[in-house]
C-alpha cells in the first residue's frame, strides 16, 4: 500500500513528465514543419545536407581528423607538464626565485589575455619568418607551440585554483612533521589539488581538441582544412556538416564524462 505522500508524488511526477513531453513534441513539430516552408530550404538542403556528397567525403574527413588527434596527442602532455610547472612557479615563496614567479605571472596574464587564433598567427607565421632551415620552419611545430602556450596558461590557472582550495591545515600538518615546504607541496598539497581539478582540466582539453582546427589557418591540412578543400572541389557545404559530426562524436561523450566526474566530486565533498 503506497502512502498518501507517495500517491501524491507519483501523480506530480506523471504530470511533470506529460507536460515536458508535450512541449518538446510541439517544438520539434514546429521545426520540422516550419523550416522546410522557408523559401530557401531546398537550396540549403542541397548544399548542406547532401547525402551523396556526405558519403563521398566522409572517409577523407575521418582520415584528416587523424591529424587533429595527432596534434592533440603531442600537445596535451606538454600542456599538462608546463601548466603544472607554471602553477607551482606562481606559488614560489623563495625571494631568490622571484624572477621565476614573475615570469610565470606575466606568462599566464599574456596568454590568457589573447585570442588563440592571434597567437597562432603571430607564432605560426612569425617564427618561420626568421628563415629557419627545415624542419624548423614547419607550421606543425610552431602551431603546436602556440596551442601549448595558450592552453598551458589556462591549465596553470586551474591547477593554482586547486592548490588554493586545499585547506591551510594540510600545509600546517605537513610542516609540523618537519617536512620542507617543497616536500609539503609535492607530497601533500599537489596530489590533492590535481585530483580536485581533473574535471575542470578535462573541459580545457575538450576545448583544445576543438581548437586544433585553428591550425588549418597556418597550413596543416587537418579536418577543417580538408572540409574546405572538398567544399571548393564539389561546390557543396556538406563536408563541414560531416566535420562537425566527427567533432561532436568526440566532444559530447568527453563533456558528459567530465560532468559526471564533477558531479561525483561535488557529492563526495558534501
Amino acid at each position: 500500500m503506497p502512502t498518501r505522500r507517495q500517491v501524491f508524488e507519483t501523480r506530480q511526477r506523471r504530470r511533470a513528465n506529460l507536460i515536458a513531453a508535450g512541449s518538446t513534441l510541439a517544438v520539434v513539430l514546429a521545426i520540422v514543419v516550419l523550416v522546410p516552408l522557408a523559401p530557401g530550404w531546398d537550396r540549403v538542403q542541397r548544399s548542406f545536407f547532401n547525402g551523396e556528397v556526405f558519403a563521398k567525403t566522409f572517409p577523407g574527413l575521418l582520415e584528416a581528423f587523424l591529424l587533429d588527434i595527432a596534434i592533440f596527442a603531442w600537445c596535451a602532455p606538454i600542456i599538462a607538464a608546463l601548466g603544472l610547472a607554471v602553477a607551482v612557479a606562481r606559488d614560489l615563496r623563495t625571494p631568490a626565485l622571484y624572477p621565476v614567479k614573475l615570469a610565470a605571472i606575466l606568462y599566464t596574464d599574456i596568454f590568457r589575455g589573447l585570442p588563440v587564433i592571434l597567437v597562432i598567427y603571430l607564432i605560426g607565421f612569425g617564427i618561420p619568418g626568421l628563415g629557419l632551415p627545415r624542419p624548423w620552419n614547419s607550421p606543425y611545430i610552431w602551431g603546436s607551440l602556440a596551442l601549448i602556450l595558450v592552453y598551458a596558461a589556462y591549465v596553470a590557472e586551474v591547477i593554482r585554483s586547486g592548490i588554493e582550495s586545499i585547506h591551510e591545515s594540510q600545509r600546517a600538518a605537513a610542516l609540523s612533521l618537519g617536512l620542507s615546504s617543497s616536500d609539503s607541496m609535492r607530497f601533500v598539497i599537489l596530489p590533492q589539488a590535481i585530483r580536485r581539478v581533473v574535471p575542470a582540466n578535462m573541459n580545457l582539453f575538450i576545448a583544445l581538441q576543438k581548437d586544433v582546427a585553428l591550425l588549418s589557418f597556418i597550413g596543416p591540412v587537418e579536418i577543417f582544412r580538408q572540409a574546405g578543400v572538398y567544399k571548393s572541389l564539389l561546390a557543396n557545404f556538406t563536408p563541414y556538416v560531416g566535420a562537425a559530426l566527427i567533432f561532436l562524436a568526440i566532444t559530447i561523450p568527453a563533456t558528459r564524462y567530465a560532468d559526471h566526474l564533477m558531479n561525483r566530486q561535488r557529492k563526495a565533498r558534501s
Binding site: 591545515s169 600546517a172 600538518a173 610542516l175 609540523s176 612533521l177 618537519g178 617536512l179 596530489p191
Partner: peptide, 21 residues
C-alpha cells in the same frame, strides 16, 4: 630554520589533518 625544531617537537591537531590521499 624551523625544520629541525619541528622534527623534535611533534604536533597533533584538533581536526586530525590527516593526508586524505
Amino acid at each position: 630554520n624551523p625544520q629541525p625544531v619541528r622534527q623534535r617537537i611533534g604536533m597533533v591537531f584538533q581536526s586530525y589533518n590527516l593526508f586524505p590521499h
